[in-house]
Design a protein around this nucleic acid. Structure first.
Length: 166
DNA sequence: GCCAACGTTGGC
DNA sequence: GCCAACGTTGGC
């Protein structure tokens, strides 16, 4: 299982919105960047872990965790002329944009602000720090443990690092 | 296939 | 809401 970080603007769609969604699950639509698309389409697998990052707020932070609950599939909003995600270059035969379903797992006790990650040497190689524009980021196991140790100290005991689905 | 113009992102 | 950085587009 790999760990990813998905960015979202909380005023558009927040972790709380995911928690309140039917089945606490939503299709992660709207990704319109090729590198992020390639990861969604080619690398992300059902069951992978997802950290949710709130961008553009007053204190942009990693706020919690979700799980991938589907294989990648074409983002349906690309086919809908009435939707802001519409892409006239896409067709059902040749979809251009992909998404996965994600299910809410947990809200961290202590959100981890970008400003703090920037200050800590152990996060110097975080994509969020190096390439902040990329909306689908890859997180190493070591980075995940370090994030969890700051966000959910009591869960970061060795061997007990994965919160159960709630 | 270069690169200038343009559009978008996202921290501040 | 500003604006710097970055990604995309399209003329040549």
């Amino acid at each position: 299982m790999r760990t990813w970080l998905f960015k979202t603007e909380p005023k558009d769609f927040s972790l709380q919105d995911l928690r309140a969604a039917p089945d606490q699950t939503t299709g992660w639509d709207g990704v319109r960047n090729y590198q992020a698309r390639n990861r969604l389409r080619d690398e992300i697998q059902d069951g992978d872990r997802v950290l949710i990052y709130h961008s553009r707020g007053k204190n942009p932070s990693i706020v919690g965790e979700a799980r991938v609950t589907s294989a990648p599939y074409p983002d349906p909003t690309q086919f809908n002329p009435d939707h802001s995600g519409y892409d006239p270059r896409s067709s059902e035969d040749m979809p251009r944009w992909y998404q996965v379903d994600v299910r809410y797992v947990t809200t961290y006790k202590t959100p981890l602000p970008l400003s703090e990650m920037r200050q800590r040497a152990e996060f110097a190689d975080l994509e969020l720090v190096i390439r902040p524009r990329l909306s689908i980021q890859s997180i190493t196991d070591r980075q995940y443990q370090q994030i969890l140790a700051l966000c959910e100290p009591e869960l970061s005991v060795v061997g007990a690092c994965s919160p159960a689905l709630s």
